[in-house]
Computed example of a mutant assay.
Amino acid sequence: MASRPAPTARRVRLAAELRKLRERAGLTSTDAAQMLGTSSGQLSNVESARFGVSPDRVRAMANLYSCTNQPYVDALVGMAGEKSRGWWWETYREVLPAGLLTLAELEHHATAIRTAFTSHIPGMLQTADHAREIFRQAIPTPTPPEVEHRVSHRIKRQDVVFREGANPYSTVIHEAALHMRVGGRRVARGQLRHLIEMSEWKHVTLRVLPFEVGAFPGSGQSINYLCGPVPELDTVQLDQFHGPVLLDAEAHLEKYRRLLDVVEAAALSPEKSRKLIHTIAESL
């Protein structure tokens, strides 16, 4: 028997949100299933993302659970109606960790992206040469084909910044990352010039956190904040050595929104940031 394909990240999130709505309504899965005219087993499969759910069923569930947040309900209905296969990242399923595919999916659907990086250039703004050198340093040491798979995946992820009508992308990069000569002078200089070019795009906001700021909240932690169609469906992605970690609890979302606000306020303006990057590039 063929194995059931892994659910998409969006379907997993939809399932989790439907379960939270039921629990907030104070209904057991047995009671909710009975009111919806289905079995508790079927409802369990939907809430665990083993089975998909139709947009009409999502509306019925939201109505049963007395959810009056219409924009939120509309967003859930939209998620239910999305296609589940055929996206570009699916071609990497056999060659890259699942977490990287999930990240690409979430970035693709994000309405805006806010990031803050301490020790490296954000993947969305990396050149292929820079990314290749980063991946070569991975442990355990990857094979040349594995490196190229990761590089091509990273470059394709950047479509969310380069595509026509791209949504807002905002990042704060610590000055330390700008001084790291990844790949040597030529690659490092090319990377900095690429940042300068990207910082001039209208939908890209790039700020540098200078050394003189000193300690700041979240120092040492890279943050990738992916905005959903409504704030309740935002996602935080944190880089860990073993792979990306995703957070979507309300308390986590509020914490990282505030943290990004503080870091952005402490950083240089986009214009001063561009000048600093240019100065560092000229010194190489």
Rank of each mutant, 00 (worst) to 15 (best):
S66Q: 15
A98C: 07
T118V: 07
P122S: 13
G99C: 07
L103N: 03
L76P: 05
A75G: 02
T115H: 02
A75F: 10
V77P: 04
M124G: 05
I113G: 04
P122L: 15
G78Y: 00
D129K: 00
V77G: 04
A104R: 08
W89Y: 02
P71I: 15
G99V: 02
S84C: 14
D129M: 04
H130W: 12
V73C: 00
L100N: 06
I121F: 06
Q126K: 10
A110W: 01
V95R: 08
L101W: 01
A98D: 11
R114N: 01
L100A: 05
L103M: 01
L96F: 01
E107H: 01
N69E: 15
M61H: 12
V73W: 02
R93H: 14
M79E: 10
M79D: 11
T115Y: 08
S119A: 14
G81I: 03
C67F: 08
A128M: 05
S66R: 15
S66Y: 08
T68S: 07
H108C: 08
L64N: 11
H130R: 05
T111F: 11
T102I: 11
L64S: 03
N63T: 12
R114G: 07
D129L: 00
S119W: 12
F117S: 07
Y65K: 08
E82F: 07
L106D: 01
D74L: 03
A116H: 12
E94A: 10
L100R: 00
W87S: 13
H109T: 13
I113L: 10
E90N: 08
V95T: 14
L106V: 00
T118G: 02
Q126S: 03
L103W: 05
L101N: 09
Y92A: 03
H108G: 05
H109D: 13
N63P: 04
A104W: 01
A80I: 06
I121V: 09
I121R: 00
D129C: 06
L103T: 00
T102E: 11
P71K: 06
L106N: 00
N63C: 03
S84Y: 09
D129F: 02
P122T: 13
A128I: 13
T102W: 01
N69R: 13
C67G: 12
E90M: 09
Q70I: 15
A131E: 07
H108A: 06
T91Q: 13
V95P: 11
H109Y: 09
L103F: 03
K83C: 13
S84V: 15
